[in-house]
């Protein structure tokens, strides 16, 4: 579904990503871990081209994303993203936040979008917040609305950039639970996170990145219980 080939990204002279190769299949739940500043968020942002890779290729469902003929906006409909800071639109009510893209992209009528939005909000217990503005919601609620906003477009792949890093501990749980539910429903997901317990329970594959390179990848059991590289061992020791 997603192929990353020899991906490199530099900011000025600093190489943030070096020769990243990755292949992700349908229904995989990938968790990317690594120390702060290792490039894991940049990798995610390069995958959906919010950040332009310096070198290398990203192919999504067989389509090269850097190709001039590729309409990246069409691709992004099928590849959603959830941000650390939620990035809800503060001037719009919850319902208008989530129906904006499907309606303005003419993928759905307004009525259908509202119907679908209400149904999804109902599933996560936020039906009564439909006419509230984002700032009237708690952080955890905002992030769950942001996830619903991405789900409104029926993405094939959903990227999560440290979705719980800006949240209090008790709010983290409600967001992580929702992500687990999505995983169970068969959605393909790539999650950058510092939540190791979540990674263990949730991931089908864990990728450890350090200094812009993939150091190790495998099942949660492989990485957390039998780390091979010294750097991963150090990393795991440090966060214990």
């Amino acid at each position: 579904m997603l192929i990353v080939k020899n991906l490199e990204k530099s900011f000025g002279k600093t190489k943030v990503l070096k020769n990243i190769n990755l292949e992700i299949n349908e229904k995989e739940r990938i968790v990317i871990i690594g120390p702060s500043g290792c490039g894991k968020s940049t990798l995610l942002r390069c995958i959906n081209q919010i950040e332009k890779p310096t070198k290398g290729k990203v192919l999504f469902e067989g389509i090269p994303l850097d190709d001039k003929k590729t309409d990246i906006n069409k691709i992004r409909i099928k590849m959603g993203m959830v941000f650390q800071q939620f990035n809800l639109f503060p001037h719009l009510k919850v319902i208008d936040n989530i129906i904006l893209a499907p309606v303005k992209l003419k993928l759905m009528s307004k009525e259908d979008a509202i119907k679908k939005g209400k149904k999804l909000l109902n599933q996560i217990g936020l039906a009564e917040k439909i006419n509230n503005y984002p700032k009237e919601l708690s952080g955890g609620q905002q992030q769950r609305v942001a996830i619903i906003r991405a789900l409104m477009l029926d993405p094939d792949l959903l990227l999560f950039d440290e979705p719980t890093s800006a949240l209090d501990p008790e709010m983290k749980q409600e967001v992580l639970e929702l992500m687990k539910d999505l995983g169970k429903s068969g959605l393909t997901m790539i999650v950058v996170t510092h939540e190791m317990q979540f990674a263990k329970e949730f991931a089908t594959r864990v990728i450890f990145i350090d200094e812009g390179k993939i150091i190790e990848e495998g099942t949660p059991d492989d990485l957390f219980n039998h780390p091979k590289s010294l750097r991963l061992k150090e990393f795991l020791d440090n966060i214990k």
Binding site: I50, N73, I77, M81, F83, F89, A101, K104, A146, L153
Partner: peptide, 10 residues
């Protein structure tokens, strides 16, 4: 805000 908009295909 721009990034969120872009990520939704706008």
């Amino acid at each position: 805000q721009i990034e969120a908009g872009s990520s939704l295909g706008l």
